[in-house]
Design a binder for these strands. Sequence first.
DNA 1: GTGGGCATGTAAGGTGTTACATGATTCT
DNA 2: AGAATCATGTAACACCTTACATGCCCAC
Lengths: 191, 191
Amino acid sequence: MNYRHTWSKIMTKGSKTQYAILGALSIQPMSGYEIKKMMEETTNHFWTESNGQLYPTLNKLEKNKLVTVDKQMVGAKLRKIYTISIMGKNFLKKWLLDDPEYYPARNEFMLKLFYGQNVPPNISINHIKKHGEKCQKALKIYIEIEKQLEEMVKQKKRPVYFLLTVKAGINIVRAEIDWCKESIELITKYH
Amino acid sequence: MNYRHTWSKIMTKGSKTQYAILGALSIQPMSGYEIKKMMEETTNHFWTESNGQLYPTLNKLEKNKLVTVDKQMVGAKLRKIYTISIMGKNFLKKWLLDDPEYYPARNEFMLKLFYGQNVPPNISINHIKKHGEKCQKALKIYIEIEKQLEEMVKQKKRPVYFLLTVKAGINIVRAEIDWCKESIELITKYH
DNA sequence: GTGGGCATGTAAGGTGTTACATGATTCT
DNA sequence: AGAATCATGTAACACCTTACATGCCCAC
């Protein structure tokens, strides 16, 4: 009498790791190692993968013919270059069309701040100061990347979408930097 | 007296669920059900817990004497009111003193946007528009809460820290709303 | 008398990280 | 010589969610 279990098994969309990998390969053929490096350099502030997810998923994608693999021997060492297949591209596109899911992202910093009345105010102020410094550092890096990308987008060497995610990072960290200043004042005033 | 050794033996440092629960109980004694409701009403935008985490963790906290429990029978139904113990408060404080960990939060929306060149631009624009609408709705709610909290903080009925996390939400969604507008323009211009 | 809120909890399953194993090549 | 980087991969474990199980009480 219970269809729910079957239903959820059929409808499982599974891990997003596969899409993150296929997305990377939609730019150019790469090895697993290169995919990871690329993620660290470009999508690091909103997406990364660990080796424990990356390599098994790559093999699964190959088995399902969503990617093809070119095995090269570099000396005695294996190097596998993955290329996205037509099926893989379609699979990626299908996912891109769906509305993204919104996870409520957990934030330990906010959680600690929320319960700040249990410790002296300077503890919370220090957490905020350090947070602000991290944001400042991130902002510098993002602005540098933005400058480079803006040029490349104008020359159609990079898609505008790359620039947008950097600009999102910039807007958010700026908002956080403003909030840090205001928050320290408020704690000082009200505690 | 150094509790650190004892604590690490008692509870693994691992899951933050225990701290989220102890934090809630630092405000007032509550049942598991009330803790969850409270989280949904106050920390929802940066922290929630599922039943599968909440109830086992409460029992573990009791076993380790970080909380005490008052079992009440409401008709034939059990109701357990948890109160944080001195040990529990110390355990919470210890965690509050440590620098918060920064997880790189995954964001499927950004991931889809980043690989937007694989689909027509109106797809990405629609994702952004919907995101903007969600932010607008959230902003309205946050501003309403902010208004109420501001009054209560002035009257010292609520700690300033509650207000700060709401203000953080406001700053961030405002930044995102601005970014949405700018992004749609940029896609239109460069695609 | 039914739906929703109150209330506690478990089972199964999936997602994800960390640490490790292995070994070549390249830089200092 | 030793450290860092290149490169693929596995095992163990931790974490978390979903769906389910149970049943009371209250309002409409």
